[in-house]
């Protein structure tokens, strides 16, 4: 079952190579053509569309000119396109109710709309932009350095390999199993909600890519079998009692029952 998926390390090697080649080609093409299309120099059209979307979906809390409201929502002037792409792209925004924990829901906008929203917010003041494909390409990263950085800076909240964990007062750090590399990068850059900011001086763009590479490694599966959520000894103890002791005690009952 699982083993099949895990074997791709071997069998999928040619596929991955081909994919990497393809990705490289498209990237080269996009560099050649669409680099100016990045959020920094977004078209006026996009900004205008974004403003409309903003007024319709975000202004209730953040204010018509995104200046924010005390105690309700922060100002968005200067948060940059990266913050919008992360918050809206993971479904955290728009929020249902103001609070410290923004829950990732179904994404409510399509990629184009998100880009338009991002372009609008980016136009309000300078801020971090959405990283390009090379910046988040796990294949270029060093997972060993990523591990060092992850365990020093991230694992206390997100768990040793990104399984997530609890914060105070009901807040939590989410699991990172399904988070896209771009969103991981953006989260580090902007520090959404409870998460601190890891700017480029603290963690260079290469460092961030190394972290992505480390997290990608985890998706190859666990060497020892099913990973029990990677939440550590509590899960192991629970399984030892439920499954291990359960099975063995079941056998003792079978031994004790008279045969018919």
């Amino acid at each position: 079952m699982r083993t099949v998926a895990l074997k791709r390390h071997h069998r999928a090697a040619p596929l991955i190579l081909m994919f990497a080649l393809l990705a490289g080609l498209t990237m080269a093409a996009s560099f050649a053509r669409s680099e100016p299309a990045q959020a920094t120099v977004a078209s006026e059209d996009a900004i205008q569309e974004g403003q409309k979307l903003f007024a319709a979906n975000c202004a209730t809390c953040h204010g018509l000119s995104a200046q924010g409201q005390d105690g309700v929502a922060p100002t968005l002037v200067g948060v940059g396109a990266a913050a919008v792409d992360f918050q809206v792209g993971t479904g955290r925004m728009p929020m249902q109710a103001s609070g410290p924990q923004a829950i990732a829901k179904d994404v409510q906008f399509n990629d184009k709309q998100i880009a338009q929203l991002a372009a609008y917010v980016a136009s309000l003041g300078p801020g971090p932009s959405v990283p390009d494909a090379e910046a988040v390409d796990a294949a270029l990263g060093d997972p060993a350095n990523g591990m060092q950085l992850f365990r020093t800076n991230c694992s206390m909240c997100h768990g040793s390999v990104g399984g997530g964990g609890a914060l105070s007062q009901g807040k939590y750090a989410p699991a990172l199993w399904a988070t896209t590399p771009t969103h991981i990068y953006e989260a580090m850059l902007v520090g959404p909600q409870s998460m601190p900011v890891f700017n480029d001086a603290n963690m260079t763009p290469e460092d961030k890519r190394d972290i992505i590479a480390f997290l990608e490694e985890q998706r190859d599966g666990a060497p020892g079998g099913l990973s029990l959520g990677t939440i550590g000894p509590v899960a192991e103890g629970l399984w030892a009692w439920l499954l291990g002791m359960g099975l063995i005690v079941g056998f003792t009952v079978w031994i004790g029952v008279r045969s018919s």
């Binding site: 060092q148 950085l149 020093t152 800076n153 520090g191 601190p196 900011v197 890891f198 700017n199 001086a201 603290n202």
Partner: peptide
């Protein structure tokens, strides 16, 4: 900085940042 030992300037530490 932990673990690589590079030095930290005050200007590196933006608001909301945590350095180990």
């Amino acid at each position: 900085k932990d673990p690589d030992g590079s030095l930290i300037k005050a200007s590196d530490v933006t608001i909301g940042s945590v350095f180990h």
